[in-house]
Write a protein that binds this DNA or RNA. Structure first.
Lengths: 205, 205
DNA sequence: CTATACATGTAACAAGTTACATGATTAA
DNA sequence: TTAATCATGTAACTTGTTACATGTATAG
């Protein structure tokens, strides 16, 4: 099991095309609709990558349609490369999330503005959550192996947004109770999680 | 409130230096220790960015130490730019998470291997969770506004890993019960979440 | 006929990773 | 004296974003 630097889009495209032949346009829509929660990708990145995959023999053109539409499917070599990636490389567990990063700098705002910032986030998360909940109800999750797998990923999205909403509500309450001020939160106004240990950190010159 | 394309590292560095003067080396450690959960960054990206920030007058050198060590602090202009970013630009809510992406392609593995894959993930998540739980206990969360804010971000990390562990356990059970096979899960062996509506998806030629 | 959705691409740039490269200080 | 840690940087490459550029089919 060796290390893997990137190539996520590369394998994601093979995987989508292994489940169901599609065009670059369709893939772009799929990324926007369902995969965007874990791996956003624009058409300008997808089309050149499709060309490279064809060149590498990992996908092939499966047909054409109106308006220059070209559909692709994964080749045997492509499916092998994909399973090799799934089986033989360890995942990169890094997460990149700007909204999370901003939480780190909430202290730069006055408490009421920080709370307003979080309320705004909550609105966005609720919107995403509502979309996903709607999709659970309306989409067909039995159509293919990919669809059944997609249901699992969607469940992760649901849990992710619910978690963020709960966190942001908790953080808002903490901040409203004075958690960002020097004397700490007003006792008893918000639930305090974790002990506030007074222990000196190593000071570097 | 206009849109913001990237610049996250740019502002993150100003923010860290606004809370406490530090060197590029210290910043690299901080990113590895606490910010890595939301925004990983290597020293090779940090040093050039520090140089650019100095050039732009958003940070300035605050002192020097042994081995060519240079400490920086945020300038007034830098802090203003940071609050302007926090207040005047809307967050990019995109998340990029390869481990999540792989969930989408679990169907390419036989069920027992898919379950093993998830078990492996769970081990990693448990490790991260344990590290964060340890940090909650041992670090000083009262030292500065930044530290107090950091406690909120850390709480998000705790909830994030707990959510992933629960999700992976749920997904393992679903797969073990046959959720990836064509006939769906064996009834009664695993809790079924969401209705499995049989509804045709739009078929495109 | 006209707006919308379909459909594919490229170019310029920004951001991020890995590897290379060097050297000083400290603790064992 | 030697290994680990501290400390800073650059170069080559990959990945990802935004904007540009073009054209076809369909529905109202």
């Amino acid at each position: 099991m060796w290390h893997n630097g990137g190539m996520s889009l590369h394998y994601a495209l093979i995987g989508m095309l292994a489940d169901e032949p599609m065009s670059g346009y369709d893939l772009t829509r799929r990324f926007a609709e369902s995969l965007a929660n874990v791996w956003p990708a624009q058409h300008s990145q997808i089309y050149p990558e499709l060309a490279r995959l064809v060149g590498a023999g990992l996908i092939e053109q499966a047909g054409e349609g109106p308006r220059g539409r070209k559909t692709y499917r994964a080749t045997t070599a492509g499916v092998e490369a994909l399973t090799q990636w799934m089986r033989g490389t360890k995942p990169d567990y890094d997460v990149r999330c700007e909204a999370g990063l901003r939480g780190f700098f909430l202290w730069t705002l006055p408490p009421d503005e920080a709370v307003a910032h979080l309320k705004q986030d909550i609105e966005v998360y609720r919107g995403h959550l509502a979309e996903l909940e709607d999709k659970v109800e309306t989409a067909d999750w039995t159509a293919s192996a990919g669809a059944r797998s997609g249901r699992l990923t969607l469940e992760m999205g649901l849990r992710y947004y619910r978690m963020l909403i709960e966190w942001a509500e908790w953080a808002s309450a903490e901040i409203a109770a004075g958690a960002l001020e020097a004397d700490g939160p007003e006792p008893g106004t918000a639930p305090v999680t974790g002990k506030r240990v007074r222990k000196k950190v190593a000071v570097r010159s």
